Amino acid sequence: MAKPLARYAALTGYIELGRMLHMNPAELLRSVGLDPAGIALQDQWVPATAIARVLELSAAASGHEDFALKLAEHRRLSTLGPLSVSIREEPDARSALGMLIRYQHMYNEALYIRMTERDGLSAIQISIDPGEPIPIRQSIELAVTVVHQLLRNLLGDRWNPVSVCFEHRRPADDATHRRMFGAALSFDHDFSGIVTYTRDLDEPNRLSDPGLRSYAKQFLDTISAPEQPTLEGRVRELIELLLPTGRCSIDQVARSLGVDRRTLHRHLTKSGQTFTSVLDATRAELANRMVSGSRYSFIEISEMLAFSTPASFTRWFNRQFGVSPRQWRKRTAATAAAALELDTDVSRNGQNRVPKG
C-alpha cells in the first residue's frame, strides 16, 4: 500500500520562518529528500513522512518546541487550496467544518479529522498517520492550529474553544500555546484536537456571501472527484522530487511508497511500464522545460537531472530529442523570437490601419 502524500502547502512560510530562527531551512529540506524550490509549488504532492520529519528536525535545530505553531502563523485560508473557496462560502461553522472533514483527502492524505457531539460540547479529534512510526508531535500541533485558525476566521475573534488538547506532553514553555489558543490547554490527553460548545458551530459564517454559495458549489463539483492517483503518477512525482537530491533510485522510490522493489516493478509492468521508462519520460519532460528556457546552464541541468557528467546528459538528450541541448535551446529561442516579431507586426499593422468612414 502506497504511503500517504501531502501538499507542499503544508510548509507555507517554512523558508521565511527558518531564516528568522537562524536555521538553514534549505539544508533541512534536502536532508529529508525535499527540494527547497518545490515549496513555491503549493499543489505539488510529496510524501507526508518527509513533511513530518522536517518539522521535527526544525523544532530540534531551532530549539523551539513551538515551531509548528510559529509556522501556522504564516498560513491563510487559501493554503487549503481550491477547497478554501467552498469552505469560505458555507453558511455556518458546522457545515464548513464538515466540508473540511469530507474533503480532507484533497490536501493531506495522512490527516484524519472526526467530530463527536455530547452534552452540548463538540470534540474535533485530529490524528496523523504518515504511514510509518515516526515522531509526529509537530505535525499534530500544526494540524490542530490550522483547524483552530479556520474556526477563528469563520466565527470571529470573540470565539474561543472550551479546551485544546494534545496527546503529547506539555512543552517546557507553553507561552505560545496559551497566546494562540486562548483556552484551557490539556496535555497528555486521550486525543489531540479542540473542544468547543456545539452551539458555536451553528453560528453564521461571517465570511460567507449567500450570493456566491451556488457558484462555490459548482466550482467544488469540478474538483471534488479527482481520479485516484495512479502508482505511475506517484512514481513520476517522486522521481521529479528525488532527482535533484541525487538519490533517485527504484529502491528509494519504493521505500517512499511503502512497498518493496519487486512490488513496485510488478505494478509498473501491469501498466506496460518499467521504472527506467518512467524515469526517462519524467527526465525528458523536465529536460524539455529546463533546456527550452535560459534560467539554468547545461551543467546545472545535468546535475539537477542526476547525470554523472554533462557529457552523459548531452548524449542522453540527443537520443531523446535528436539534437543537442544547445541546438534545442537555440531553436526554441528562435521560434519564440519569430513569434514575438509576428505579434509586433500584427499589432503595428492594426495601429496603422486607418478606419474607413
Rank of each mutant, 00 (worst) to 15 (best):
G120H: 03
D129H: 11
L121P: 01
M106S: 15
E90I: 04
S95M: 12
A96G: 10
M115T: 12
I124Y: 12
S95H: 07
L111N: 02
D92A: 05
M106E: 13
A123M: 11
M99Q: 07
Y103N: 09
G98I: 00
R102W: 08
A93K: 06
S84L: 03
S122E: 13
D119S: 04
G98S: 07
D92L: 02
R114L: 09
L100I: 10
A123P: 08
A96L: 08
A110K: 05
I113A: 02
A110D: 07
Y107V: 15
Q104G: 01
R102Q: 15
M106Y: 07
S86C: 06
M115N: 05
D129I: 02
Q104Y: 03
I113L: 08
H105F: 14
R118S: 09
L111Y: 01
I128E: 01
N108M: 06
A123S: 14
P82E: 14
R118I: 00
Q125D: 09
I101E: 06
E89R: 06
Y107M: 11
R114T: 12
V85D: 03
V85G: 00
E109T: 13
T116K: 01
Q104E: 12
R114Y: 15
S95C: 08
G120A: 04
E117Y: 01
I126M: 07
I128T: 03
T116R: 04
L121A: 11
G98Y: 07
P82M: 13
D92F: 11
R102E: 15
S127A: 09
S127W: 00
S95Q: 11
A110N: 06
Q125A: 09
H105M: 15
I101D: 02
S95N: 08
R102N: 15
N108W: 00
L100K: 05
I124W: 14
R102H: 13
R88N: 08
L83H: 07
S84P: 12
D129K: 06
L121G: 06
L97H: 00
A123C: 10
S95P: 10
R94W: 02
